[in-house]
Design a protein around this nucleic acid. Structure first.
Lengths: 248, 248
DNA sequence: AACTATTGTATCATAATGATACAATATTCA
DNA sequence: TGAATATTGTATCATTATGATACAATAGTT
């Protein structure tokens, strides 16, 4: 099926979708000590965008978020959490959508929901970087990880959406480190050192932490278990490896 | 204008509204040591409901929440904050809406957005009980305050929406008491005693607090200023009155 | 075997919190 | 008028959490 045919089929199935409502997913990964976010490039659009989509009539918005992520990235069974609704009146997504479909040579009737204003629900997830094999779908040219500290120009209010997701992460981490640890588990490999974990915290919080106190705090949360194997490599004492205890 | 005419006009102005999206407002008040929530009773519907409404094409969802609150309750300039989106597929609001309009003798075409599924954005606000003069509008028979501890049967998932709003309040209060105090200021009269404030906290948190430590904590937040006047009445030492310092 | 970088833990000071004690005082009532 | 009572404001102690520093342990390098 050609791209434009898929798009045409999507636009024709008007009654299967909830108008006015879209979902954008902020997918965080962690690699080489950098916090990454998954972005894609739509055909004929310069700015990069968050993986997004629409809600079907017969699915909940949580289910829609999972399906959209699966379609755009191939990742299944990812736990997503809503964090904010973006409903400014000047989002102007309709202008952007018009660009997309006109580039495909499609003409829509003036009142079609796809080229009217809609509001977007932000969902975030923390995933294991290495397990993701980003594959562009029929809508996009490319999909890749980008360092949160150095984001490229983004579509619409997507930079603001990422910022809000980051704020949500920071708040969670600061006020509920145990809850954060459970959700953040996928960001790190199965086993990891305390230094790895600290680097993750420092990246998200945007500040340095005292190593000794960080270790004391993490161990007191009782969400980590020490694996008796040790790491090899550096010219110094070998650190323990830890894993997150399965949540009780 | 007769009720059914207003409703008819509303339903005919299909293009002025965002389909699929509604807003529900959880308005908290505090009176006689009880946390109250504002509920209304729609015509021909038994269960009580949160004041709610829809979003116009040319307004942001924040603006819509303010306008809806004004229309349903007469309260202007209330600071509302979004806290969650409710998008289960079994909300079944369309069935409820069908009941409402059929009771008014109105027939809608099958695909009309008003009798299709929509998701709802929850907003909450904390207001001064005594300043609200609840007045039912053309949609409702009555509007009144209800004790959060003893809610009547509610429409759809409105009980769950109130619960989530309460959870949000509790989290805010527990993790950011200074921020909560600023937002909670309208719940209390201009000046109040420390005991009043403590009762508010205990009601929201659902647990007793130690008086002496509560006082120490509140004073340390530097959001209160002591008014030199004193209260009269009881057969005991007169407490100081406090007011919230205007946020800096 | 000495050296180096890093790790794990102990320990100190300081701040925040939980719990108790008690003086101060506005009213009531003998 | 003055003792009794209920409540308030503050002090104080113990306990816990946090910030900061010190130091022994150790895997590699030289």
């Amino acid at each position: 099926m050609k791209p434009s045919n898929q798009l045409t089929a999507f636009l024709k199935s008007e009654n299967e979708w909830l108008p006015s409502l879209s979902i954008d997913c902020v997918i965080f990964g962690f690699h080489n000590g950098e916090l990454k976010v998954l972005l894609l490039k739509y055909h004929n659009v310069d700015a990069l965008a968050l993986p997004g989509g629409f809600v079907r009539q017969e699915e909940s918005i949580d289910e829609a978020a999972g399906r959209i992520l699966l379609e755009r990235t191939g990742m299944a069974d990812i736990y997503l959490e809503q964090f904010h609704i973006f409903g400014q009146k000047d989002r102007q997504n309709h202008l952007f959508n018009k660009t997309i479909i006109e580039a495909q040579g499609i003409l829509l009737p003036a009142g079609h929901w796809f080229i009217r204003r809609y509001v977007s629900v932000g969902y975030y997830a923390l995933v294991e970087f290495s397990k993701v094999v980003p594959a562009p779908d029929y809508l996009s040219d490319s999909i890749d990880w980008y360092d949160v500290q150095a984001l490229p120009p983004l579509l619409l209010d997507h930079r603001q959406i990422i910022q809000k997701a980051l704020d949500t992460l920071r708040t969670l981490l600061a006020h509920n480190p145990a809850g954060f640890s459970r959700r953040a588990a996928p960001l790190l490999p199965e086993t990891f050192t305390m230094a790895d974990l600290q680097q993750l915290y420092e990246t998200i919080l945007g500040q340095k932490l005292l190593r000794t106190n960080f270790q004391r705090k993490m161990l007191s949360l009782e969400v980590l278990e020490r694996v008796d194997k040790k790491w090899t490599g550096g010219a110094h004492k070998a650190p323990y490896l830890y894993r997150f205890t399965p949540h009780p």
